[in-house]
């Protein structure tokens, strides 16, 4: 068996560090790798915990689902209990893009541009059936679901969804944020803007 070469950043392959799917084969770890992995995992958990409990959202409200969005925001259902009470009306300051309502074809370049302007890490929630699949607007003018142009993390069904469903979708998104991998810094370049 050929041992992997020791590298200063650790021997563990990317996929084996945190929850990788190819983690079935045990990798020989040095003490240094174990230490780095331990701290990376704890750091990722801490970052996930911080990020899931302070979701700044950008509400892209286009249709009647906005009323239910307001209801979910307001005192009775109070989305602030889950740390998501802060709508930022600039996509550059937001973590979560909430697509609230029907997206028609004429509007889709705007939505794409708003999504491109958001900083990483970012998540997207499709709020209601129109944003998820086009709903009953199966016609020439409507985009058949926002996931045809941007990736969507959580779909909340309903026409419009009850605020409980919105909160449930938010909890699912929080679980996703907690379990995904976070890094303190990244050397990856930002994707190309525009286009």
């Amino acid at each position: 068996m050929k041992l992997p070469m020791l590298r200063p950043e650790g021997n563990v392959p990317e996929s084996a560090r945190l929850g990788g799917e190819e983690n079935n084969v045990p990798v020989m770890l040095s003490r240094l790798d174990e230490t780095i992995g331990f701290f990376e995992k704890n750091l990722s958990n801490a970052l996930g915990w911080a990020r899931k409990n302070s979701i700044f959202q950008y509400p892209f409200v286009t249709a009647c689902c906005g009323m239910e969005y307001m209801s979910a925001m307001a005192g009775r259902y109070d989305i602030a209990r889950f740390g998501a009470e802060f709508p930022r009306f600039s996509p550059r300051q937001a973590d979560l893009l909430m697509i609230v309502g029907t997206i028609n074809v004429k509007q889709s370049p705007v939505l794409k541009r708003v999504y491109d302007q958001m900083c990483e890490p970012k998540w997207v929630m499709a709020f209601g059936v129109c944003a998820s699949s086009g709903g009953f607007y199966d016609n020439y003018a409507t985009l058949q679901g926002a996931d045809r142009i941007i990736p969507v993390d959580v779909y909340v069904p309903g026409c419009p969804p009850r605020p409980e469903q919105v909160l449930d979708g938010l909890k699912i998104l929080q679980d996703k944020i907690q379990t995904q991998r976070h890094r303190a810094s990244t050397m990856e370049r930002a994707p190309e803007m525009g286009k």
Binding site: S108, S133, Y140, G145, R148, I149, P151
Partner: peptide
């Protein structure tokens, strides 16, 4: 018929459920 302005994302493994569209 649809005439989209933004090119559609391609998810080869995504299968949509029954329904219109």
């Amino acid at each position: 018929k649809r005439q989209l302005l933004v090119p559609e994302l391609d998810f080869p493994d995504l299968v949509r459920g029954p329904g219109p569209g």
